[in-house]
Simulated scan of single mutants.
Amino acid sequence: MEVFSDKEQITRVIDAFKAQQLTIGFVPTMGALHDGHLALVEKALENNDKVFVSVFVNPTQFNNLDDLKKYPRTLEKDIMLLETISKDILVFAPSVDVIYEGKTVSQNFNFDGLEHEMEGKFRPGHFNGVGTVVKRLFEIVKADNAYFGEKDFQQLQIIKKLVKNYSIPVNVIGCEIHREKNGLAMSSRNTRLTEIEKLEAPFIYKTLKTAKKFFGTKSADWVSKWVEKQFESNEVLKLEYFIIADIDSLKQIKKKSKNKKYRAFIAVYAGDIRLIDNIALN
């Protein structure tokens, strides 16, 4: 398996692939890979001649420096895991200096308001950091297709907007949420949960599924209040937000409309570990 950390080296390889008219698939990650990431990689392998996986913990998208320090970094293990799928995957594991060239700051973006909803309200500047690193990775890798999980649905919509606003020639493909057997959405942060938190965390998805059932007959406001009440009696999990939103604008809704599609979004703390999830409602 080839691992690149140098921008010039990876550019030469990509230019050679392009000259041969080979299609390139790309899966950007922050490492600490799990089966959810591997599902994205497998999808990319099915649809492209060559596949790159980036492993880069992006400092500019963390509001909490402690969270950045604690974020798992397991490059050797990640490479071994990728090799179980295919030894032909190419890994791009750059340093912060390679990506940011000595200036570790975010570019300011206008994502037509998507960046101010949900995660944007609780993590100011987060999506500027996401937009900055994804734009730079797209400029380096020059992929035909890029794959992102729907667990970070707001991020997925923002990346689609980034590609449209900046005319980046890449097809952004969203892939369904990969879950543990107990329903918990797979996340690199799950490895930091205590045994008690691991036992309690599936309550998040269970609550989302019940909220989806209620959404068929109840108002969005009623469902939101019901969810808040469920978490009031949970001693392990603390609800940060539950929002029912239009999937295009990501704005919280007050009333349902027949021709609109909605998702429920949730953010929950288990100790100091923040877990997010979402579910399609119709």
Rank of each mutant, 00 (worst) to 15 (best):
201 A>E: 03
202 P>K: 10
204 I>T: 04
206 K>R: 14
206 K>M: 08
206 K>S: 08
206 K>Y: 08
207 T>R: 02
208 L>R: 01
208 L>Y: 03
209 K>C: 11
211 A>G: 06
212 K>F: 08
213 K>Y: 06
213 K>T: 12
213 K>F: 04
213 K>C: 04
214 F>E: 04
214 F>P: 01
214 F>I: 09
215 F>W: 12
216 G>W: 10
216 G>K: 15
217 T>D: 11
219 S>P: 02
219 S>E: 07
220 A>E: 03
220 A>N: 07
222 W>F: 15
222 W>E: 14
224 S>H: 06
225 K>Q: 10
225 K>P: 01
226 W>H: 11
226 W>T: 07
226 W>D: 04
227 V>F: 02
227 V>N: 00
227 V>S: 04
228 E>Y: 02
228 E>Q: 01
229 K>N: 03
231 F>Y: 07
231 F>P: 00
232 E>S: 01
234 N>R: 07
235 E>N: 14
236 V>S: 10
236 V>N: 11
236 V>I: 15
237 L>K: 01
237 L>A: 07
239 L>R: 02
240 E>I: 12
240 E>L: 12
240 E>G: 08
241 Y>D: 00
242 F>S: 04
242 F>L: 06
243 I>K: 14
243 I>A: 12
243 I>E: 11
243 I>M: 10
246 D>A: 13
246 D>S: 10
246 D>V: 13
247 I>T: 14
247 I>L: 13
248 D>Q: 14
248 D>L: 13
249 S>T: 15
250 L>V: 14
250 L>Q: 12
250 L>M: 15
250 L>P: 09
253 I>T: 12
253 I>K: 08
254 K>T: 13
255 K>D: 12
255 K>I: 13
256 K>V: 09
256 K>M: 11
257 S>F: 12
259 N>M: 09
259 N>V: 06
259 N>R: 13
259 N>D: 15
260 K>R: 13
260 K>F: 09
262 Y>C: 09
263 R>Q: 09
263 R>T: 06
264 A>D: 02
264 A>R: 01
265 F>D: 04
265 F>E: 03
266 I>V: 12
266 I>M: 02
266 I>E: 01
266 I>C: 03
267 A>K: 05
